[in-house]
Write a protein that binds this DNA or RNA. Structure first.
Length: 314
DNA sequence: CGAATTTGACCGGCGC
DNA sequence: GCGCCGGTCAAATTCG
């Protein structure tokens, strides 16, 4: 399934990238509307407010279009997700090799490479094993929630470090039988009482993909991002914690493609797809818009222009 | 010198 | 009961 075909359509949330959003236009447009920024000069108020209203209308239209696109994308995502669920439910359990049915977890590690799309593929509790847990009540007693995250890193990067915003202390490393690359074991070291563990191992198929398996829930707030990199540095890694199990996605080492939100969308659980993801997307768009200095400058100019317009000359 | 990581030993669960 | 295997411990080592 080619997820990228719908992932990278138009969700570049960074207005300062190469996409010519109309918000950029007030500054560049040669047709005399530079007055948005330099409205301290002598300018006809009516001209200015008319241009502003026009601009606002255009922005509103663009906003509508973007919202529609977003809704369409989410719908197509939902459709794909349900298709995937159908397919997965049709695959019989004999897909797993009989010699590896020691533990549910190790066997789950085997079927996850053929459909990676950088996200949580299998949440052993929520996605697919509801009826399995009826057959195997033992597995259902798993108190710790398990989520799996796929992270693309440099293939040459041998350190199994996944920067997800938390602090981890490595306490072991093992070479497992089904995968020649070593598996690293981490505990959350931010809070001494935090029970969360994670296992990190390279994918057997794609050495540039690292599989991080999280067990348990953090009983503390995520530590503040103290990366001293400049200004809008939070682009490096995103983490969302929508409902319970820690779901962290790392995009730090990937090339910044601008479709991070779409990947979050593709990586989410089927349960939380529509309303929450949409809200998250809208929030992300709003955030990236408000962080753009051009946008804030234009907004400030527009607001002050409005205020001038509404208060009549006296 | 203290903290973090490495790595071999050890332990417990599971299949035969 | 024995051996295999994944997970954890803890002493040794490295790093800042």
């Amino acid at each position: 399934m080619d997820t990228s075909s719908w992932v990278d359509t138009s969700l570049d949330l960074n207005p300062s990238s190469d996409r010519p959003l109309p918000l950029d236009t007030p500054k560049k447009e040669p047709s005399g509307n530079g007055n948005l920024i330099v409205f301290g000069k002598k300018l006809s108020m009516k001209e200015e407010s008319g241009a502003l209203v026009e601009e606002l209308n255009r922005v509103n239209e663009e906003n509508k279009k973007l919202t529609e696109k977003l809704a369409a994308m989410c719908e197509s995502y939902n459709a794909l997700q349900s298709q995937l669920t159908n397919l997965m439910s049709k695959i019989p359990e004999k897909e797993l090799s009989p010699s590896k049915k020691r533990k549910s977890e190790s066997s789950n590690n085997n079927n996850n490479n053929d459909n990676y799309n950088f996200g949580i593929i299998g949440n052993s509790e929520s996605s697919s094993t509801d009826e399995d847990s009826c057959k195997k009540p033992k597995e259902e007693i798993m108190k710790a929630k398990v989520s799996r995250v796929y992270v693309r890193t440099e293939a040459s990067d041998t350190s199994l470090v996944v920067k997800d915003g938390y602090q981890w202390r490595k306490y072991g490393q093992k070479v497992t039988r089904d995968n020649p690359s070593p598996r690293a074991y981490f505990k959350c070291s931010f809070a001494p009482t935090c029970p969360v563990k994670k296992k990190v191992q390279r994918s057997i198929d794609d050495q540039s993909v690292v599989i991080a398996t999280y067990e348990g829930e953090h009983n503390h707030l995520p530590p503040p991002q103290m990366e001293p990199t400049s200004g809008s540095s939070h682009r490096g890694s995103a983490s969302l914690n929508p409902s319970g199990p820690t779901m962290t996605l790392d995009f730090g080492k990937t090339k910044p493609s601008g479709s991070d939100v779409a990947r979050i969308c593709s990586s989410s659980q089927p349960k939380m797809d529509s309303p929450q993801v949409r809200q998250y997307l809208v929030e992300q768009m709003a955030t990236s818009l408000t962080k753009d200095p051009k946008f804030t400058a234009a907004l400030a100019a527009a607001i002050s222009g409005r205020m001038f317009q509404q208060s009549p000359v006296e």
